[in-house]
Amino acid sequence: MRRRPGIGGLQTAAAARDQYRLLGENVAKLRTDLMKEQLATFRSQLEDFARKHKNDIRKNPAFRSQFHEMCAKVGVDPLASNKGFWAELLGIGDFYYELGVQIVDICLGTRPHNGGLINLEELCKLLCQRRKSAREAVSEDDCLRAISKLKVLGSGYEVISVGKRKLVRSVPTELNKDHNEILELAQAQGFVTVEEVERRLSWSSGRATDALETLLDEGLAMIDDGHRDGKRRYWFPCVSSISAYVGAETM
């Protein structure tokens, strides 16, 4: 286009810019509206689904877990708040808050015995024992979800993986790699000896003793000098199932 000089030219250019912007805005608005509509449809469908399967979601742990997975995929967190539609509709929020409180209770109750580290399986078993009267079954997945909600409290509830097992930590102790390896080793028999740690992990004697002493100080291990071979054994209540019974007794 030939350049048009003068004030008229400038005005035309400005008018054209305005026109373009207006058009752009219209297109954007159209898109947003469309998006909003889609979201609304989606939301109502999800609500319908949740309403329809309310009982399944409440009672069937496997179904509940799948529902959560689906929600996570589309970016909805039914646990994000206790208020609002999801909690009201499903009562899911309360369910997990209740579990959370019970988990804290169990962790505190068994802490003197296991030093604040408990097998997830064990925790789940204790939780079920305690909720005998409640109608809903509780799965490990539910425990994990409830624990993830506890993180908000900043009290250091965390799930750590040691070997094949998951352990729930309720004390702020940091376990380093050495400690984890020892715990993993201990899973086989429930205990380890210094000698075994040195041999199986190819550690120096000092390294093994150091790590074991720390675990002992943290209350995660107990010594046993009573075996005939005279070798000191370090037992880990968090990997043996005994914690269930000792814990249950005192609660």
């Binding site: 003197p112 015995h113 107990m222 010594i223 046993d224 009573g226 054994r233 037992w235 005994i242 000792v246």
Partner: peptide
Amino acid sequence: LPQFFNYPPYFTLQPVKDTREK
């Protein structure tokens, strides 16, 4: 008998204070 009776380390005096109290 309580379950702890079957857990060997309970037969050794524990050196760490908290564990020992329990």
